[in-house]
């Protein structure tokens, strides 16, 4: 434990602790619900916008629901989507980066041009169009299209579709240098197929950049999820997410600014922690980057 803290530095260790705490709190939502003796979905129109009290530690929202419980349940959704979509994005990015870096030549040029194109395009307007697609027109039954699983799945797919280029670039860079190494040459000389060499010999050695890219991707994905949900195109109420809890908050900003603070603080804390952790992981795993100590989670460097 102390060895990890030493390698990551105090800031990143604190970030990791915050993330663990947030995840545990979200996981414990049903327990908190029972301990408080409340129902997270219970609407109480007489107790709307109540200030913090013993019964409601953070007060209630515009429908009289307990804010703390909504935040915890929202955290489950936001964090799950964040991790699942980031892993999906990293998987796509790894496959593309590996193909580009290992095969090189024209494949590399085409794939990387494509990645650059995705990074350069205005993603949010595109995501909004994609998120507005009516799934019943794609042959889904109305019930299935409105189900929570399908909506969550769609959000994961959408965010993964735009989140992969960062990983692709990092993995490509690693694969480019790895494919010239002796052990890869040896594997090729033994007559293994390119796929086997790439997956069994190159991929495991690119684990460090993949880990860093996945971590940084979680931050980006949580941001994308929150803004899409905020705009009404991601997680739909009554299912809470940190993003869609802020939608109602904007209309009530004059009456109850308190509602706008908490969900945002949690998104912010999550993303800052993830970015700090990703940066520290990069430095810890790649001694060369310590000197440069830069690059951004934004813009996909």
């Amino acid at each position: 434990m102390s060895a990890i803290v030493r390698r990551l530095g105090p800031g990143a260790s604190l970030a990791a602790a915050i993330l663990v705490a947030l995840a545990l709190a979200a996981a414990a939502a049903p327990l908190v619900e029972r301990a408080l003796g409340l129902d997270a979905e219970a609407v109480d129109l007489f107790g709307r916008l109540a200030p913090p009290s013993a019964a409601h530690p953070l007060g209630t929202d515009e429908l009289g629901r307990d804010l703390l419980l909504r935040l915890l349940y929202g955290g489950r959704v936001s964090l799950t989507v964040g991790v699942v979509a980031a892993v999906a994005a990293a998987a796509i990015g790894t496959a593309i980066g590996l193909a580009a870096g290992y095969l090189g030549g024209r494949t590399d040029a085409v794939l990387m041009r494509f990645a650059d194109g995705v990074i350069a395009l205005p993603l949010l307007p595109l995501l909004i169009v994609l998120a507005a697609v009516d799934l019943t027109k794609l042959g889904l039954s109305p019930e299935a299209a409105a189900s929570e699983t399908v909506l969550l799945g769609r959000l994961v797919v959408l965010v993964a579709l735009v989140g992969w280029p960062t990983t692709a670039r990092l993995v490509r860079a690693a694969a480019l240098s790895l494919r010239r190494r002796e052990f890869v040459e040896a594997a090729r000389a033994l007559g293994f197929s390119p796929l086997r060499v790439a997956v069994r010999h190159v991929l495991p050695n690119a684990a460090a950049p993949i880990l860093v890219a996945t971590t940084l991707a979680v931050g980006n994905v949580v941001l994308f999820e929150s803004v899409l949900s905020f705009l009404g195109l991601g997680i739909r109420p009554p299912t809470p997410s940190w993003g869609n809890m802020l939608t109602g908050a904007q209309e009530l900003i004059w009456e109850s600014p308190r509602l706008a603070v908490w969900p945002g603080v949690l998104i912010f804390a999550t993303v800052v922690s993830v970015n700090l952790l990703g940066d520290a992981l990069r430095d810890a795993l790649d001694p060369r980057s310590r000197r440069r100590a830069a690059g951004g989670a934004r813009g996909g460097e």
Binding site: G219, L223, S226, V227, F230, G243, L246, A249, Q250, I253, A260, V261, P263, G264, I267, F268, V271, V272, V274, N275, L276, D279, G296, A297, R298
Partner: peptide
Amino acid sequence: FAGISVPPFWLALI
């Protein structure tokens, strides 16, 4: 780090 991590719409709200 704060700048790249803050959700823009929340910054606007604040």
